[in-house]
Write a protein that binds this DNA or RNA. Structure first.
Length: 419
DNA sequence: TCTGGGGTCCTAGGACCC
DNA sequence: TCTGGGGTCCTAGGACCC
């Protein structure tokens, strides 16, 4: 059996842990730049605030209904996630951390265990240790566990946050209830297509001919179908090193000057290099993109990207920043107001397997330099050591007007209790 | 005024090899 | 009249997830 465990309205619940007076009150968490809504408490959902809602369009609604608004505090959410995951580890030998707020637990050899009871204990234990409320769906396959989890969310009173689908009858009942567009792995495009041929529920989907599914949804769709039928096809996945690393941001304001973009691109490339070194790898390819504000149809639009194959593999922030700026020069055009840019690196190899080139190589001095920078930043805080081509005055160039304290990761933000 | 960020996998088609 | 067979690698684009 598999369980899918996830934190209810995770970011909103994190904010509540240190602000218990907000229990029962509507909360929303905004994306970077305080752009759009990325998490909502149940009370906020009940007000009809949709996922992804632009914050400025709903500011009236927020004030009117006394909605508590937070800027995304990923340092905090990441730490809370880590705490939850490490507790889950004690309840099963096999755990897959699927996202910041979700994990699959595999229960093999638990035949004589009461899994429903086991998972109820898990939910209470994590709740007690972290303050994060969980939902747990248990079923014979991963895709079915996702369905069971959905049922927990939909019927919190009946299920008390834990639901097990351990019989064929329960599974079929659930699949007849689940709309095709709500199946994990079926997005907008596939849902539309399925609805067109009259498959409206998950039950309809699993009864389609294999050949149709294979042809229209590739092997991915076929695996999903089998898994939903109760035939375990999707297993836990190992944590693998990343194949791509990206740093991309929207800007606080629009930039037109090359020099402004240059600073951003340097910073993004430097950040990519740092992530790459954590993975002990070098990259061979780098991509830079810039774009104007897509939402402003009244302004001239320009999107472009440029890929550079590096002359030698590197994970030096200085070198990646240099090549990223070469790429930027190729695509920069004067006369546009840019709103977003990013650097992506790919085509990795382990840093200890890099072959020396006859003519050109990564600067040998950079390796110890980067090591020193990483060490200093670890001790004194992120982005303490930066390139001169980065903006040295400001670390964050984002709108974050409602940022909560880093309660659990910064000593100066720790809560004070008066007695 | 204002609209996020970071990933994965699969497929078709073209270029190229012997 | 009549133009092979069997591969690999790479890329762009499309789908999906949180």
């Amino acid at each position: 059996m598999y369980a899918l465990v996830d934190g209810n309205n995770f970011y909103a619940s994190c904010e509540r842990v240190f602000r218990p007076e907000l229990n029962g009150k509507p909360i929303v968490v905004l994306s970077n730049n305080d752009g759009c809504v990325i998490a909502r408490s149940n009370e906020a959902k009940a007000l009809g605030i949709p996922m992804g809602a632009p914050a400025f369009e709903y500011s009236k609604c927020f004030t009117l209904n006394n909605v508590h608004v937070f800027s995304a505090n990923f340092a905090f959410y990441g730490d809370m996630s880590h705490r939850v995951m490490s507790l889950l580890n004690d309840f099963t030998p096999e755990l897959e951390i699927y996202s910041i707020d979700e994990a699959f637990l595999k229960f093999e050899g638990f035949t004589y265990f009461n899994l429903e009871k086991h998972c109820t204990e898990l939910k209470h234990f994590v709740g007690q240790c972290t303050g994060i409320p969980l939902s747990v769906g248990i079923a014979p396959t991963k895709a079915l566990a996702k369905v069971a989890n959905k049922i927990c969310k939909k019927f919190p009173i009946q299920t008390k946050g834990v639901y097990m689908m351990d019989t064929e009858a329960k599974c079929m009942k659930a699949l007849k209830w689940l709309k095709v567009e709500d199946i994990w792995g079926i997005g907008r495009q596939h849902a539309k297509r399925l609805q067109q041929i009259g498959a409206l529920t998950a039950y309809d989907f699993i009864n389609l001919p294999d050949a149709w599914v294979r042809k229209n949804m590739s092997v991915v769709g076929l695996r999903l179908k089998l898994d939903l039928r109760g035939i375990p096809t999707l297993d836990l996945e190992e944590i693998e090193p990343k194949k791509n690393i990206a740093t991309t941001r929207s800007f606080e304001t629009m930039y037109s000057e090359l020099s402004d973009l240059r600073e951003r691109i340097s910073t993004f490339a430097f950040s990519c290099a740092e992530k790459l070194r954590k993975q002990k790898a070098c990259c061979n390819t780098l991509m830079v993109f810039i774009r104007t504000n897509n939402f402003r149809q009244d302004m001239p639009q320009y999107n472009n990207s440029s890929v550079i194959h590096l002359p030698f593999p590197s994970n030096s922030g200085i070198e990646l920043s240099h090549f990223a700026n070469l790429a930027l020069n190729k695509i920069y055009r004067k006369g546009y107001a840019y709103k977003k840019a990013g650097v992506m690196i790919m085509d990795f190899m382990p840093q200890d397997q890099v072959q020396l080139n006859v003519f050109e190589n990564s600067n040998v001095k950079h390796e110890p330099l980067m090591k020193a920078i990483d060490k200093l930043n670890k001790v004194y805080g992120m982005q303490k050591i930066r390139l001169a081509s980065q903006d040295l005055k400001r670390v964050w160039k984002m709108k974050q007007e409602k940022l909560s304290p880093k309660y659990t990761t910064s000593l100066k933000d720790i809560i004070t209790i008066f007695t």
